[in-house]
Write a protein that binds this DNA or RNA. Structure first.
Lengths: 222, 222, 222, 222
DNA sequence: GATGAATGAGTTTTCATTCAT
DNA sequence: TATGAATGAAAACTCATTCAT
């Protein structure tokens, strides 16, 4: 790791500095001079690694989104073969979502809080992100409906709603909260809600035992 | 009425102009000079009515939030006396939520899109809004659990998740979409999801002929 | 005192309000809106009585200068006939100067402190004021030298210096100081200093008993 | 020296430009854009070196005051041992005062004319300056009274008056006047006035052949 | 690559003054 | 006369970006 390593280090230092600064002051109040001061390099150095202030935010956001989608996709590869499979998959996806955000709380915070107002283009980006998530959920729903273990429903719309559930739990329980989070608890509650609904469960509708679905493996990026 | 009315008119004209400008360029790219040009008044006039660009956004946001909370509260006054009551109430709340956002799509768009990144303080404001909604849902959930018609669950957490469902549906289906929206359809689908969950309904899980619920005609609300 | 009286009252109220505001915030920081608020009239009313913010300061300054010069001139009418006369006259002038400034401390403060930086033209005005004072002193000095009771000296220059003595005593002892001032003491000390400095260095150099020269009469303007 | 020298140069260029602009238009009418135009640098460069327009004036004023006080103090180190010493010292101080102001006429002009009304804080600054001068004079007077060669007097008050003499001579004869000044003449006239005014009125009222003192040749100082 | 001084366009905000009522 | 809403020119100051060293 000779020269290339050094260069990457600088890029990463700046990225890390940018995270700290964006979190401390918010994106628009953050100055490039704050970032370089935080990173301990000269003003001009910034522009050797990033085209602009917006570009470094873009990098941050794309890293979050890319890592997120990639991780989720790794859990989804085979289509679920039945209800049990499906349950396990949803559990795994939820667990991964919450873990990912908890482990990268700062990045997630920037993604969900700082980026949006920064530039009109980030609105599109965020929407694209939700759309990607929603499409995957929708596909699974349709698969399940066809498989007969899910009830008929407007899959696209319900997918949006389910993504929203996860989104809000992440925003209010993981990003916004300060203290430690019980990821297992979050997962099992949201999973039950998603699978069962809130009505009193009639026979045979056992809310899944999520113990199994709660692997520690999720090491993502950063 | 004469004079006072004039003053209020000016305030409103500026507000309307600000909405148009914020939607067209985004909040941070919007200049006060754009707003006054749009409103057809002089630069200084703006500052007769609003302390700053941030202040007019605050006004917009508070107007949206206030109207929203007020409307929802008007639907919630008596606590639901049982499952049927509860269902009607949730239906009404969802319907009102979607109607309100559809009727004030521009305001809603500013609220959900422009305000967040504008200023650190708006993050707090938005969070407060979600917290208020969530607390109300939580109270209803707890009431229903005590009443025996809802299953035991972590009411605070599930409330967050349910608010998230509505939030995402609003954002992706009402605000983001351009065309007309079938509010009844949105309501009935989200209502079913919320009440029943997505698993195949076992016996007696009224009120649920899925066909009907999913169909366009379903009327859960007044 | 029908209409005219009213009009004059308004003018005076505005003037008084302007004094208070100029003293409180300084001329340049003072806003016309502060003055009208202080006077309890509408913004536009100001311009019925004064052409501009500068104009009201001009009015204030001219009132001070005019009153000052007028008062001094009333003491100087007959040329002093000899040393005794001269001493009495200098004493009276000093006493009047100090009284005037003490009685109109606020106006004086505006004159000496606020006006200068307000506008280049006030520099000229102030200089003109000093020039007028200096010329009068110079004339007396020349008269005294010709009369043989003052020593030969550069009358114009010494006049400037003597005016400066009074000026600084006024600024540091009357305007700047908060508490009460012993005008008799100021007068007698400055008088001694002045007379000893300029008298012909012959016999009879008794510093005047200033008791006599200290009349209470000085009621000036305002 | 290379780099540091450059930075200092820029500061000085801006300072010099500011002097020219303040003298030409007056402080309050002067725009930062005038200063940078005069200095031939960009608008933003100004703020690399000075926080604000007020700050550069502060710098100017402090430079004047500092240089002035420092110079005077260098003349005063040993306390005068008697009348002769005292005379020499007063002469030296007057001469230095006049020289300094004549040599830095522009700076002095800004100090005495522009700074005062600029900001309330400058009133304090100027007053502090006069207070410093006055205290030094007062100390000398008290020393002389104790030494028996000065007459009893209110040293603090007379000190103020004497400072005022110098102040007005500087303002009217050095700063305000355009042409050349005869510093020797100013010094000798003011010196006579001052000494006669404060010396003990006993025998030997040297140093006083009035003819000579008033003449151009008089040399009271080195 | 690294530096950091210099750039200058861009925007908010203020406030003396006007004028329709 | 009195009002006070409206005007709009004016200016300070910021900060992302560049570029000579």
């Amino acid at each position: 790791m000779g020269r290339g390593g050094r260069l990457e280090d600088r890029r990463e230092e700046l990225l890390a500095a940018a995270i700290r600064v964006f979190l401390a002051h918010g994106y628009s109040a953050a100055k490039v001079s704050d970032i370089v001061a935080e990173a301990g390099v000269a003003q001009g150095t910034f522009y050797l690694y990033y085209r602009s202030k917006e570009h470094i935010l873009h990098t941050l956001v794309e890293r979050f989104m890319g890592g997120f989608i990639e991780r989720l996709d790794s859990l989804r590869e085979p289509l679920p073969r039945g209800l049990v499979d499906y349950q396990a998959r949803v559990a795994a996806v939820l667990r991964a979502t919450f873990s990912l955000c908890a482990e990268n709380r700062q990045l997630a915070r920037i993604f969900f809080h700082e980026a949006l107002g920064a530039d009109p283009s980030f609105g599109e980006l965020l929407n694209g992100f939700y759309r990607q998530l929603s499409r995957r959920v929708q596909a699974d729903l349709e698969h399940g409906i066809a498989g007969g273990y899910l009830r008929p429903l407007d899959a696209a719309l319900v997918a949006d709603a389910l993504v929203g559930m996860g989104d809000m739990v992440v925003r209010r329980r993981i990003i916004f909260d300060q203290g430690d989070v019980d990821l297992d608890h979050l997962t099992s509650e949201v999973l039950s809600l998603e699978l069962l609904g809130i009505l009193r469960p009639s026979a045979g509708r056992a809310p899944t035992d999520d113990r199994e679905t709660t692997g520690r493996s999720a090491r993502w990026f950063g």
